[in-house]
């Protein structure tokens, strides 16, 4: 809501539009469209995830429980080989889009962070590391499906375990990412890029990814990978976080809030 007050910059936008060359105007409109494109990767990511993981491969909520025997796991992979592999293609695509969406957040905060955007760099590093992690976990599940039924069940189970253990257990980059975004908003003493309360929301989201870490220690119940604490809290909060910040970024861009700080002048 306070983002509306922010826009004292129709003035700034006006002057740059009036006093600029056609080439510059073109560049701005390109930037506007590319920013919208990356912002839409947020919702796109959720849709692809639902198609891949919820509908086809059934990794969410997981069809395989951490307490299932190796035989049951291998059986499941053998019976659903194709659905799992096609589903993983969609899931992996969704996870790859996370990297693109992360750029959207970084571009938003970069506009105001100044010449040395420390927190934006933290966001980018952690976001890229997190993306790499979860893309790899799709590869591990695909490996489990690759020879399911041909190799001994324990091998299939081990790769299936590894996937979940990476997906949920390596929450650290995600948490640091969300906290960096939150601090980016809260430490801004002028008018932040996003409404101030969303800074707290982002840090809270980061804290909510932490329970995923229990996947390393528990084979059943709420702390195992099918559990309400381990799986549902981090995933639901992550989804809300992505969608809400996508929405805010689109609003910013649509209000013409694209070049508040023109970096070509500064650097």
């Amino acid at each position: 809501m306070s983002a509306t007050d922010v826009i004292t910059s129709p003035v700034g936008g006006e002057t740059s539009r009036n006093g600029s060359s056609p080439a510059r105007a073109e560049r701005q409109s390109m930037s506007r469209n590319s920013q919208l494109l990356v912002a839409w990767c947020g919702p796109a990511m959720v849709v692809l995830f639902v198609i891949g993981s919820v509908w086809l491969a059934r990794y969410f909520p997981p069809a395989i429980h951490p307490s299932d025997s190796p035989q049951e796991v291998a059986q499941y992979y053998r019976d659903h080989k194709d659905a799992i592999r096609v589903g993983l293609v969609f899931t992996c695509l969704a996870y790859a889009l996370m990297g693109v969406w992360g750029v959207c957040m970084a571009v938003q905060t970069r506009r105001k962070e100044g010449l040395f955007p420390v927190l934006t760099y933290v966001q980018l590093t952690c976001m890229a590391a997190g993306t790499a992690q979860i893309v790899v976990n799709c590869g591990l599940w695909a490996t489990a499906a690759f020879r399911a039924g041909d190799v001994s069940p324990e091998i299939t189970q081990a790769f299936n375990d590894a996937g979940f253990i990476i997906l949920l257990g390596t929450w650290m980059p995600f948490t640091i990412w969300a906290i960096a975004l939150g601090l980016n908003i809260l430490l801004d003493r002028t008018t932040p890029v996003f409404p101030r309360w969303t800074g707290y929301f982002s840090i809270w989201s980061g804290v909510c990814f932490m329970p995923g870490g229990t996947v390393w220690f528990f084979k059943s119940g709420p702390f195992g990978w099918t559990g309400v604490v381990c799986l549902w809290i981090p995933f639901m909060v992550f989804g809300a976080w992505v969608l809400y910040f996508s929405y805010l970024s689109m609003q910013n861009v649509k209000r013409g809030f694209v070049h508040e700080q023109d970096l070509s002048i500064v650097s």
Partner: peptide, 16 residues
């Protein structure tokens, strides 16, 4: 308002 978003969010999780 932000800190209350955080507080109620945490209360919700702990309630669970």
């Amino acid at each position: 308002i932000g800190i209350w978003v955080f507080i109620f969010g945490d209360m919700l999780v702990f309630g669970l």
